[in-house]
Simulated assay, not measured.
Amino acid sequence: MKIGVLLDSSSGTTNEELKGTNIEVIPLHIILEDESDLSDTRENIEKYDVYKRVNDKENVKTSQASPGELEIKYTEMLKKYDHIIHITITKNISSMQDTAVMVSNQEEFKGKITVPEHNLAATAIKDCALYLNKLIKEDEKDVNTLVKKITEFENKFIAIIVPGDLSKLAKGGRAVKIFASILNAFKTKAVIHWAAKPKKIAMARKLSIIIEKVSGMLDKTYGKNGYNLKLLTTWDIPKRLLENTRSELEAEGIKFEEAYLPSIYAVHAGIDTLGFVAYSKEFDY
């Protein structure tokens, strides 16, 4: 059985990373204040100055791929693969997963599409997919086994987000407005463990305290150096904030790689948002 993996643009996956893999991507949507509907691609983010609009407090929103777009993508991929595992954006951000389940249950797709439930976020979805790609190349052909591997990956993954603008989260119903206004008034940052139910793990004004919290959570979960960590930022993040974050991570002895924060998160949390995504080294690909 030939198995393909489908992600959406919330995974931060680039075409360069997909060369030679069985992974494909369907874009989500960004809706501008004038109701212009853009596919979530870097080209569109830059062409339409989306991050500037976000920073200027314009009412920029996001939307899932439509059922029709999914039907087209599934049909296209099933010409190349016998089965598709579709790892969507998480349910606590979007209804994309429910829509994918609905479309996958249509007669022409029954038994050919699997949409696993999960709580992976941002680039962890991409890392999990690349791990599955490795297993498939090693001749793993059982869909149930691969879905179990997604759960195992999820159980050893951490996502921590430090929103650049909590008022945007509040506007989208993703934070309590009073809580957000208090934090913004005192220039305090919330450190949020992003899971099925996101949980605030700290409030801090100093970057050093934020990184201490991140370090403590990594050590508690993995021990020393038992993980792969990515620092996620937008390409428009203030240079000083990025440099200071790098310095604080290095001062804590934390090894990390850098990647771009998927634009869906930047739209909802601000362009100064910091993301820290880690997974166990046992899932290296």
Rank of each mutant, 00 (worst) to 15 (best):
Y131Q: 03
G172Q: 06
T123V: 03
F109A: 00
K156D: 08
L146W: 05
A124E: 07
K171Y: 14
K141I: 04
V162F: 06
D165I: 09
Q106K: 11
G164D: 14
L169I: 09
A121I: 10
L135A: 01
I161W: 00
I158G: 06
T114N: 04
G111W: 12
N133Y: 06
E107I: 08
E140D: 14
T114Y: 02
K137R: 09
H118G: 00
K156H: 09
N133Q: 05
V115I: 14
L132T: 04
I158Q: 10
V101F: 05
G164Y: 12
D142H: 05
P116S: 14
I160M: 05
K141R: 12
A124D: 09
N133S: 07
T151W: 15
V115T: 03
I161N: 00
I150V: 10
K148M: 13
A129N: 11
A159E: 09
D139M: 15
T151C: 15
D142N: 08
V147D: 02
V115S: 02
N155M: 11
K137W: 08
D139Q: 15
E154K: 01
D139N: 14
N119V: 07
A122E: 09
V147S: 02
S104A: 15
L130Q: 09
E108K: 14
N105H: 15
I136D: 03
E152Q: 13
S167D: 09
K110W: 06
E107Q: 13
K156I: 05
I150H: 02
N133L: 07
D127C: 13
K171I: 13
F157K: 00
K126E: 09
E138V: 15
A170C: 14
E154L: 03
Q106H: 07
E154R: 01
F157P: 00
E138W: 14
A121Q: 06
L169Q: 11
K149C: 04
V147Y: 01
F109S: 00
F153Y: 03
T145A: 11
